[in-house]
């Protein structure tokens, strides 16, 4: 099953954030709650956790790009 990793709401007025660093590569196993991505708004940096345990199947938004709140950033494949 494919679980999307979405850009979370990062504050009342934030509409988009930059993907600063992917902490995992495609193909890496990830655990639910594990920090896999750092995103940065104009005000703060935040670590984003994996929503499910599985394998990082696809990175949709590459490092350095800006994505809107709610955008799909990656796909995690579960068993």
């Amino acid at each position: 099953m494919n679980i999307p990793l979405l850009m979370p709401q990062l504050g009342n007025e934030t509409t988009e954030a930059e993907l600063t660093e992917w902490l995992k590569a495609v193909g890496d196993p990830v655990r639910e709650g594990e920090q896999i991505l750092i995103v940065t708004t104009t005000k703060l940096s935040m670590e984003i956790e994996a929503p499910a345990t599985g394998v990082l199947k696809d990175i949709v938004v590459p490092e350095g790009d800006i994505a809107e709140i709610g955008a799909t950033l990656a796909i995690i494949a579960t068993e």
């Binding site: 509409t15 988009e16 930059e18 708004t41 104009t42 005000k43 800006i66």
Partner: peptide
């Protein structure tokens, strides 16, 4: 947007 241009901050 503030992500794409230099802001006051």
């Amino acid at each position: 947007s503030s992500m794409r241009a230099i802001t006051l901050r």
